[in-house]
Amino acid sequence: MIATVADWLGAACLVAGAMLGLAAAIGVLRFPDSLSRMHAATKPQVLGVLLLLLGIALRLRSMADLGMIVLVAVFQLATAPVAAQMIGRAAYRSGRLDRDLLDADELADRGSGGGSAGSG
């Protein structure tokens, strides 16, 4: 009984994770500039991978594998924001953003940094 419920829940998690990944890919393809694409690539994708790992854990149901799954989840949570921040900073510094799509830019107002790089 419990096994069946866990199986179905795991299957639902797998499908939900895959669908979030798909939405993230659509966002990466459709969003107009690099920074918006970063948003799609970090958030729905991280949650998608986490849901998928939850699905795996629910279907495997063994302690030894659970440790490794938790490890992958922790790596994802710890590394995805760092990578996103580095790519975002690189995108901003090389001026690769659409200023028409920005409502405010307090980083450029600060004075230093690549404020003038965006006009080229």
Binding site: L20, R30, L101, D103, A104, D105, E106
Partner: peptide, 19 residues
Amino acid sequence: SLHVARIAVQPGCRPRGAI
């Protein structure tokens, strides 16, 4: 995640941003 996913699949939406 659901918010960003919704923006992504919503047709004709050009999201604006701010820093």
